[in-house]
C-alpha cells in the first residue's frame, strides 16, 4: 500500500510518500504505527507520541483501532491547523 506523510511527520521521516508492505499481523492503523516505528530513527521520532498523530485511510480520517482492510492509501499527519 501507499503511505503518505505530511507536515512534521514528513520532515521527521524524510520523505513524503513510499510503498510499504506490512506483515499480515498488522491489522489496524495502530498496528501500522507500531510497525513503522521500528523502521528507523526518523520513524521512531515521528511516531513518538501517538496522541499527536492522526491517520487517514483512502482519504477518510481513521482512528487507531480502524481496520486497514483493503485500503490502498494510508496517510499520517499531525492534528490539522488550517482555516
Amino acid at each position: 500500500m501507499k503511505a503518505l506523510y505530511f507536515s512534521w511527520v514528513r520532515e521527521r521521516i524524510g520523505k513524503s510518500e513510499e510503498d510499504i508492505t506490512p506483515p499480515d499481523s498488522v491489522k489496524t492503523v495502530g498496528d501500522l504505527v507500531n510497525w513503522l516505528r521500528g523502521r528507523g530513527e526518523g520513524y521512531a521520532t515521528a511516531f513518538d507520541n501517538e496522541k499527536t498523530i492522526r491517520a487517514a485511510l483512502d482519504h477518510v480520517h481513521a482512528k487507531p483501532d480502524a481496520m486497514i482492510g483493503n485500503a490502498h492509501e494510508v496517510a499520517f499527519f499531525p492534528p490539522m491547523t488550517g482555516g
Partner: peptide, 29 residues
C-alpha cells in the same frame, strides 16, 4: 475546516531560521 480538513500551517518569521509548525489549539477542537 479548522479541525478536520487536512491543512497544516508553518510559520516563517523575520528572524533567520525561526518559526515552525503551528500547533493545533484546544479551543478549536
Amino acid at each position: 475546516l479548522k479541525t478536520e480538513a487536512p491543512f497544516w500551517k508553518k510559520q516563517h518569521l523575520h528572524v533567520d531560521g525561526a518559526g515552525g509548525w503551528v500547533s493545533a489549539k484546544q479551543e478549536d477542537e
